[in-house]
Design a protein around this nucleic acid. Sequence first.
DNA 1: TTGCAAATGATAATCTTTCTCATTAATAGG
DNA 2: CCTATTAATGAGAAAGATTATCATTTGCAA
Lengths: 146, 146
Amino acid sequence: MKEPTFPDSPLADLCRERGLKLTGQRRTIAFVLSDSDDHPDVEELYRRAVEVDPRISIATVYRTVRLFEENGILQRRDFGGGRARYEVADGDHGDHYHLIDADSGKVIEFENPELDALLDNIVREMGYDLVTTRLSVVGRRKAKPR
Amino acid sequence: MKEPTFPDSPLADLCRERGLKLTGQRRTIAFVLSDSDDHPDVEELYRRAVEVDPRISIATVYRTVRLFEENGILQRRDFGGGRARYEVADGDHGDHYHLIDADSGKVIEFENPELDALLDNIVREMGYDLVTTRLSVVGRRKAKPR
DNA sequence: TTGCAAATGATAATCTTTCTCATTAATAGG
DNA sequence: CCTATTAATGAGAAAGATTATCATTTGCAA
């Protein structure tokens, strides 16, 4: 059986750095994730992974995605629709947020330092340190963009 | 069989106002919801509803909760843990948000007009009208509150 | 009060995710 | 480089949450 060849992805390196065993499947999944700039669910990740290496099972995708989330490599998102979706975790810099088009369901990412700061403040004043922010706003395209 | 007697709740009125048929079960569920100030999941709602009127099935709770959500009476929340949780929808005034204790999982509600305004602004500048905000911040209690 | 469309109850079916367990593979040490 | 050990994987079963089915019941308008 032939091993598919592709370079180690940034996420694969991250995986090794965290002391996780870098198996072929994890290498593949990490590659696929590094290559994605959207928010795939597990089914979709599995589809993409199989393209790269058919010797992979959906159970492993579930396992890997969970492992990566526990290790801060991935973040799980819920945009409705019943299945969890994943994206590469933000670095130490600013978080990013999601605007969901109420009609099309399309997900638009945005950043906003002012929002970062305000949230940090609010949480601190309540006596907590901010760990994660899960924010998605649902919006409807304005009828008359001026 | 005896009908349980209790007054129409605010949510029951809302239900009628929206032109939804006010069945005994919906009246019961609305009552239970009006009486709750937490974020019960369907199982928990079912438990509370059965207390009031045992002639109710969990299927109906699922159906009602979905109906109420579609009609803007309830909002569905995801705090992790695999099941959807529900709360009475905010009025036209300010939204409210959730701080989740990272260690205990406890949900703490808060409001913040500044945050309302900022989100509204951000979304407007992206060409959208804000429909709903889903925000929960996960925080960890500070070790040394000064 | 009656008729009918809609809602309900009980349970089957579906969908997503996790678990089980026999097999396979990664890695440290020789 | 080879081997042993320990963890990861594959395939499918199982679990958990939610939705669908269909015969029966009920709200509500006429």
